[in-house]
């Protein structure tokens, strides 16, 4: 119970895993959305009719933040971090939870930033041709794939850590 690795015990590793999943996913999404939204604001200042297509392009990089949130929430719920049960997490299990969350932590941070870049380019397309919004969304969604894959793997790894 009192075993530690890098000064953290099992419970603290689990809390760190949940926190960083939410934080990194959130940071990535903030940067991605801000990139696309800032350029969209410029386009809308000139042509307010393009709001519909631009809104979706701005929203797309936001999903990584949600994946981080889901992962963090599952760690909290599965391992009883809200109640007292979490205190019984041993070091090995805590480290497994942390490692299980890493795909989401890293991939959501990176993919949201790059998805923001693709969405920003999509905003440029919509500025020139309003009907290009759909194509911009598809291109942007391609980057999303890898965030989804990381979420799936993280979920399995968290379940594996729970099964012991």
């Amino acid at each position: 119970m009192n075993e530690t690795l890098l000064l953290l015990n099992g419970y603290q590793w689990a809390v760190l895993a949940a926190s960083l999943s939410v934080i990194f996913g959130g940071i990535g999404s903030c940067i991605g959305i801000a990139s696309a939204a800032k350029m969209s604001a410029g386009v809308l200042a000139e042509d307010p009719d393009k709001f519909g297509g631009l809104l979706v392009l701005c929203i797309l990089p936001g999903t990584q933040g949600i994946y981080g949130f889901i992962t963090g929430l599952l760690v909290v719920v599965f391992f009883g971090l809200l109640g007292g049960d979490g205190k019984s997490i041993v070091l090995a299990q805590g480290v497994r939870i942390f490692l299980g969350c890493m795909p989401v932590m890293i991939m959501c941070l990176v993919s949201a930033i790059f998805q923001g870049a693709v969405s920003t380019a999509g905003v440029g397309m919509v500025a020139k041709r309003g009907e290009a919004a759909g194509q911009g969304m598809i291109l942007s969604a391609l980057v999303e794939t890898y965030a989804v894959l990381s979420l799936v793997v993280s979920l399995f790894l968290i379940m594996a850590a729970q099964a012991g």
Binding site: I31, S35, K38, G42, E46, I113, A117
Partner: peptide, 22 residues
């Protein structure tokens, strides 16, 4: 640069992209 440019120049580029069409 990829992080900085959209935040620094995004608004201005958005406006000129529309104006380029004119």
């Amino acid at each position: 640069k990829a992080l900085r440019d959209p935040l620094k120049y995004g608004f201005a580029v958005g406006r000129i992209r529309v104006r380029e069409t004119k």
